[in-house]
Design a protein around this nucleic acid. Structure first.
Lengths: 148, 148
DNA sequence: TTTCATTAGTTTCCTAGTCAACCAATGGCA
DNA sequence: TGCCATTGGTTGACTAGGAAACTAATGAAA
């Protein structure tokens, strides 16, 4: 048979990743937060006061997306937008008190979700997986905006 | 510092997966195919003549999404929709000749993309990664539609 | 044999992204 | 000093997908 194409890691990576994210989004629903919003909140949590453009680079999203995402988070009063006074083009996004308070709770949900999907792995396996992912990120310098 | 939340595998999995998929989608662009379309074509390649609902289950998408995706692929003349004559509710999707011809070319692109992101891994590492992903799929029975 | 529940797919509305055009503010540089 | 290129961010048109309402065909039960 000519059938039965080669196994593609990328395929399964996406498949698993989609499921993991989906399960996580269900958990986040209870807190009225989306996965994308969580990622932003998490990023702001350590290293508060971040420029939208930097965020876009780090998270691999476009500036437009960050702009709208920020709007939503502001509407929920989880972050604030403040314009720099030296250069009024620039802004920084930072957590509100409510936002800062929320993050650990969301992090606990992420812990639970991780446990659900990766908890059965032996510590060495987990470590190996983490290392592989980190390596790929490093080797490809996956910090820059992926859309070119 | 209260900062520096725990490392979440799910986070990095999504991050890497998004980049891998994005890089792949750029390669597919040359053939005027999206990643989602590729996944359908690939599925139809071995085991032709598949019901949309089955496809939805297998790929973790809704029936609505498959319905529209099928429309697009039909417009591109890569697949066909044929109604079963015993039960006229049911249909099967199958590759056209052009579709069948295209798949191996796309598969080669997937090979290249895989090599780019995972090629540096030692065979044992690749195998371990593959096994972990397959295990997760199996343990969670990730065949059923993820949205519940 | 009519009616009703069930099943397979489609369609409509909505959300969250991208892309590209846009608007301001700034910083050269003539 | 005034113009223009650059930079930071926003906006509008468009796309893919999810949820839920819908349509059509079937099958079972009265």
């Amino acid at each position: 048979m000519a059938s039965d194409l080669e196994f593609h890691l990328g395929y399964w990576l996406r498949f698993v990743s989609n499921h993991v994210s989906h399960a996580f989004s269900l958990k986040l629903q209870a807190r009225d937060v989306t996965v994308a919003e969580w990622v932003v909140l998490r990023d702001l949590f350590d290293g508060d006061g971040v420029a939208p453009s930097l965020l876009a680079d780090r998270l691999g999203m476009t500036r437009g997306a960050i702009s709208k995402l920020a709007d939503r988070l502001i509407a929920k009063e989880l972050i604030e937008r403040t314009a720099a006074m030296e250069d009024r083009r620039q802004q920084t996004l930072s957590l509100t008190a409510a936002g800062r308070k929320l993050v650990p709770a969301l992090s606990a949900l992420a812990d639970r979700n991780d446990a659900e999907f990766f908890g059965h792995l032996k510590p060495a396996e987990r470590a190996a997986l983490e290392k592989m992912l980190r390596d790929i990120v490093r080797r490809h310098d996956l910090k820059t905006i992926p859309t070119e």
